[in-house]
């Protein structure tokens, strides 16, 4: 099923979740690595080009993901989940979304600070809106870096929580986001 129900996540939500997870982690790794490249490295030009291109596409995908989220029924929390767990988990989800958009925006502001557009795989360009503050590329760069650290920290907490539900609480929290196994037991 493509759509969510009150009990289960649909395929679209699952694909979005795992795609965004994979891309975010890969983007973090590439970003972390590419800033250390020497000028004469063959990756020096290509890696940032891919990083920016994928980043713009990811931003578009996350907008669709959010739209889908608000237009679809939301699977209810498992009955075994404590009230505080639900509140903290939801808070973490929304903070991750906010961080994602803050990282998209700060990344955009680095590359467009001089009026240049961001070329997405030489496919289309996202135009610059100009420089809003002095040395914008530096300020936006600091935000981009530390917000990414914060996001990855939160991703680790989110993943650890899912594993805790799977292996310690032995409930279907993680299985509901997967395919195959029976994930309808609404424990």
């Amino acid at each position: 099923m493509l759509k969510n129900t009150k009990q289960t996540y649909g395929s679209f939500a699952k694909v979005m979740h795992w795609l965004v997870a994979l891309v975010v982690i890969a983007m973090f790794a590439v970003g972390f690595w590419m800033v250390t490249l020497d000028y004469y490295s063959e990756w020096y030009k290509v890696a940032p080009h891919y990083h920016k291109s994928v980043g713009i596409l990811l931003a578009i995908i996350v907008v669709f993901r959010l739209l889908w989220r608000v237009l679809n029924p939301r699977p209810e929390a498992l009955k075994s989940h404590a009230k505080w767990e639900i509140v903290i988990a939801h808070l973490a989800h929304w903070v991750m979304y906010i961080l994602l958009f803050a990282i998209f925006l700060s990344g955009y502001l680095i590359s467009t600070a001089d009026g240049r557009a961001i070329e997405v795989f030489n496919w289309f360009g996202v135009p610059s809106m100009g420089e809003f503050i002095a040395n914008q590329e530096d300020v936006a760069g600091e935000f981009h870096q530390y917000l990414a650290y914060f996001l990855i920290g939160l991703v680790l907490v989110h993943g650890a929580a899912a594993l805790k539900h799977h292996f310690i609480d032995k409930d279907s929290t993680l299985r509901r986001m997967m395919w195959g196994s029976d994930n309808s037991d609404h424990k």
Binding site: P48, I110, S111, A113, D114, R116, G141
Partner: peptide
């Protein structure tokens, strides 16, 4: 070039 200036700083 903003990205180069950032690197130069």
């Amino acid at each position: 070039h903003a990205e180069r200036d950032k690197h130069l700083r």
